[in-house]
């Protein structure tokens, strides 16, 4: 499997606060990876650096062998943890905008998902509930045929019924040519979807293993191991 993402000695400070500490990591295509850690462990900071929204203090991050830039943005589909779309547009206008900017965007996939989740394309985005806005954002991100999906808290704000649908969608989109990086606290919900788990603690990777290995060698679920590692 080919490498889609590589972090070398990646470090990020906010003022004097260390958010990501000398992180070294490679991610291969064909996997769904859970980026797991408590609040303030550096998950969002790491994802923002992958997407070129934050500049590392030192070290580097490479996507398909290149630093974050125009080429990396062509192959990464990013779902931020906040509502980032222009809220004055209608849902159908947002769909059109995604199609305008991303050549790998599928209108059919987006419309099918909007219909499945009973989201009205003619409604202005700002009139939707917070949960529905998150669903629209996720639908748009997942309607791309990207090589790396970076999903920051994709199911945090949605109802349990929609969570199942979203996780099924992620699984359907998964292929040998793509990697999915999911950052979440809801480990129980995503555990069955994951191939690999990364535990991030105080900006450092404390575990990087396949879910199968965790279950077989440690005899624990990812959720149980998480509670053990991050026990307060």
């Amino acid at each position: 499997m080919s490498i889609i993402l590589e972090a070398r000695d990646l470090t990020k400070y906010y003022g004097r606060d260390l958010a990501v500490d000398n992180l070294n990591l490679t991610l291969e295509k064909g996997q769904i990876i859970g980026l797991l850690g408590p609040n303030g462990s550096g998950k969002t900071t790491f994802i923002k650096m992958i997407n070129g929204l934050l500049t590392p203090t030192s070290g580097m991050i490479l996507i398909n062998g290149e630093k974050p830039g125009v080429n990396s943005k062509k192959v990464i589909s990013y779902l931020p943890e906040r509502c980032a779309l222009p809220d004055w547009m209608k849902v159908k206008e947002l769909v059109k905008m995604y199609g305008d900017f991303f050549t790998d965007f599928s209108y059919d996939k987006a419309r099918t998902m909007l219909s499945d989740l009973h989201l009205d394309e003619n409604k202005p985005y700002k009139t939707l509930s917070k949960g529905n806005r998150e669903k629209v954002q996720l639908i748009l991100a997942m309607s791309r045929q990207a090589e790396l999906y970076c999903l920051d808290e994709p199911i945090g704000g949605v109802d349990p019924a929609a969570r199942d649908y979203i996780l099924r969608t992620i699984l359907q989109n998964y292929n040998e040519e793509a990697a999915v990086l999911i950052s979440t606290h809801l480990i129980q919900d995503v555990e069955s979807t994951l191939d690999r788990a990364l535990f991030l603690k105080e900006g450092q990777i404390v575990l990087n293993d396949t879910v199968d290995n965790i279950r077989e060698q440690r005899g624990k679920s990812v959720d149980a191991l998480f509670r053990e590692v991050f026990a307060c």
Partner: peptide
């Protein structure tokens, strides 16, 4: 700000 999370991840310089 917030919308930067969308616009700055578009494949443009």
């Amino acid at each position: 700000s917030d919308r930067g999370y969308f616009y700055l991840t578009l494949p443009v310089s």
